[in-house]
Nucleic acid binder design. Sequence first.
DNA 1: CGGCAGTTTGATGTTACTCAATTTAAGTGG
DNA 2: CCACTTAAATTGAGTAACATCAAACTGCCG
Lengths: 237, 237
Amino acid sequence: MNASLCVTCPNRQSGLCGKLLGSSPEEVAPAPKQGWQRFFAARPGQQIAARNQISGDIFVVCTGWAFRYFQLADGRRQILQFLLPGDIFSTITIFDETFHFSVKALTEVQISGFARSKIHEMCATDSGVRWAVAKSCIDECQDATELATALGQFSAEERIAHLLLQLMSRVAARSVVRDGRYSLPLRQQHIADAVGLTPVHVSRVFSAFRDRGVLALSDGVLQVFNASELERIGSVA
Amino acid sequence: MNASLCVTCPNRQSGLCGKLLGSSPEEVAPAPKQGWQRFFAARPGQQIAARNQISGDIFVVCTGWAFRYFQLADGRRQILQFLLPGDIFSTITIFDETFHFSVKALTEVQISGFARSKIHEMCATDSGVRWAVAKSCIDECQDATELATALGQFSAEERIAHLLLQLMSRVAARSVVRDGRYSLPLRQQHIADAVGLTPVHVSRVFSAFRDRGVLALSDGVLQVFNASELERIGSVA
DNA sequence: CGGCAGTTTGATGTTACTCAATTTAAGTGG
DNA sequence: CCACTTAAATTGAGTAACATCAAACTGCCG
């Protein structure tokens, strides 16, 4: 079997993860001894990568949630992306061995690392991999500019709605969603750091959404009651 | 002569423009008849590219200033990047023929367009071009995440200082700067759309900077009196 | 039962927006 | 050279959005 997409790691667009991991999770998880691939796990809250760190490996989230962020000197931080199973930490780590961001585990996570040299080797021989890398790079740029647009132009409600819509579509791509219930293992503090608001104000916005019957978030589960209203609020265009 | 960097188009990091244009401006400007390359000009304020537009060409600013932005349905817009001589509209246009942004001229500009197929051909044969493309992609992602961080975490003063510092370094890379005077052909409206504030508030922030002896902006010229104070305010880390 | 982390709520302060008027600067035509 | 026009910048007053501070509440776990 050499299918191009890994079932447990469906990186939504690029299929890059599939190309790295192979077609079947059983092939790869219990047998990591290929020299150019290694695995490790982390506990919730644990820091996995730090800015300015140099690594010969390229990392992909296999199970659990993590997030990539940029930390300022005074403690403020901007969460740049929530990393779901199948997500590469950042596509630019394929080209640049120095991290320009930090990564922390949100839940228990399992991480897979690939030797950069191996990836480059695959790029040289396989045009499909080259294309997948390019696609992944495009997506990362797009996501970053969309985030910038949301942070620059959107109100608090719009930013939170936008973030939730994005997370909803990414969760839906990886698992079946029933009755508008999405599993989101985040604290309001994480949402605050992702949309540039204080946790207190995030709480107030959620209260407003709840009162208006749009959605409710508790216990790591997001329940969407009025999806079209949420989209009206949080869509970019 | 086959130097890798074009003097009049010094794309600060990648040298991508140099690889596209050749070493000498005289070689290229009056003789655009190679089939895969074309030129055009635009007047200040003129729209050069629109979102969802499909183009077989990749565009580079040769002279003048332009800006890339994302327009929302209700009229709000986020300026994503100011384009200076040597800047490619967006590196991802090399891979994706659909624009996900719009571009407008700020001053009179001359634009050069390259056939995407020609670029791909160059990528296939020249590893230097491949690397330059990768580098340019990295820079674009970095810029976008830095913008997102600034918009998410910074106050009004910090955002404006940050933008000015970035523009100052990019102007300085292209021309000699004397006495802290930078030529910036922008209206306060553009700054407002770039940092997510209203023009009125931008004006107030500039008044504050002026009163404190940090800088003054008028007539398209930025005069910096206290560079270290400006850096203290607007540096990301 | 007590402690803890996370969330919610209230009161108050600050930042930035809105609206509107005024000033400034740069043309343009007489 | 001087009205006149127009776009941009500035200023003031009032308001809305979001932050800050602190207290109370919730669910969970030992």
